[in-house]
Design a protein around this nucleic acid. Sequence first.
DNA 1: GCCGACCTGACAGCAACCTGAACGGCCTCG
DNA 2: CGAGGCCGTTCAGGTTGCTGTCAGGTCGGC
Lengths: 218, 218
Amino acid sequence: MRVLLIEDDRVLGGAVREHVASLGYGIDLMTRLDDANEALATTAYELILLDLNLPDGNGLTFLRGLRSRGNTVPVIILTAQDQIASRIEGLNSGADDYLVKPFDLSELTARAAAVARRYGGNANPLLRLGKVELDLARRIVCVKGKPVDLTAREWAVLERLARHPNMMIAKSAIEDSLYEFGAEIDSNAVEVYVSRLRKKLGSDVIKTVRGAGYRVSS
Amino acid sequence: MRVLLIEDDRVLGGAVREHVASLGYGIDLMTRLDDANEALATTAYELILLDLNLPDGNGLTFLRGLRSRGNTVPVIILTAQDQIASRIEGLNSGADDYLVKPFDLSELTARAAAVARRYGGNANPLLRLGKVELDLARRIVCVKGKPVDLTAREWAVLERLARHPNMMIAKSAIEDSLYEFGAEIDSNAVEVYVSRLRKKLGSDVIKTVRGAGYRVSS
DNA sequence: GCCGACCTGACAGCAACCTGAACGGCCTCG
DNA sequence: CGAGGCCGTTCAGGTTGCTGTCAGGTCGGC
């Protein structure tokens, strides 16, 4: 596991770096967002620790940019006691957790482990369909890095489509995976679920192939 | 299956391209990383063959960037004999396999098949008609690698022609595959669909055989 | 030039599709 | 036990865009 620490306080940054390194993980410390962006372009991190007040910009802006580019790497925000508003805004901007300074290093370890566990480390493959990502194992869907709640039926339709990206799936095939064999359904249920999925995921994810079925592209 | 070949040696690149194309797969050859990134943005590849020494950058940097953006497309690195260090670094950077130059084309085939199999990608051959490729199983048509949407009738006409390339197909035969037996049609519907197909695929794909029918050439 | 074959833009009709709304079943709370 | 919310399903009305047709134009052979 490789960690990116973005923190301009050299004392705190050095302490965290040593602690993380002592746990046997790789860690890069950046004090500027510019440097962090450069590091992100060349290295695949599995966790980012992000301070919000940085010399060349706001960490929240950085985080939102990250998520809007479809990057779903776990991010833990490091904030001072008096920045509660920023903290909430951080979670809304796509952070996974936060730590209030000053924090105990063992608490950092625990939170980092929890976040990494939640994300399944590096093992679980994400299926990417443009700005939409789905984790088939965990039944999680994200749009631009933000999780979206789907009902059982909505998930079933999306999964059926996503398991064969770029392939046209007949409406009858989707019905078959929705209902038991032989369950005759004479309605437009699939159309309704597609409509609801489009409302949640964006209208350009599922394409209609008129007279044939539906398709998602990777 | 569609392959992206990134190689600046024109002799080697051309040979690999012809070989892969002869196996019935789509392949795009790029000599610069800029072009490769552009191609990746618009086309879904199922395999990348990557040379490391390129005129506008290092292939390893490109590969790491690809992986950090969450792209998991299989990558096979093409390296010279003396670049053992790069080879190891390549595998660490997210490559799936490597080939040492000069390599036998049959070895390329075997490794590519192994990698594709490992990723569960169904490597179904494409039907090639000049710059047009069609995947009969997935009902996908591409022109110069870019997907094109066809309506049901348009697809039916194209499929009827493409299943027998270089052979003249009578207009009545196309009508028979469009409509139920006995459905009398007293119009120029086939001509209209051919016209619409030419607009979408390019005017040189379907040739008119005056007084007889139509033909596509492979 | 003349004629038949073919091409193609336009258009009305219609089937397929979309989507807001409603309703009943199920579950969870209070 | 009842209220309320969520989900699945159905329906109806609106919308989209495919389809077949036609008319006028173009092309090729003689």
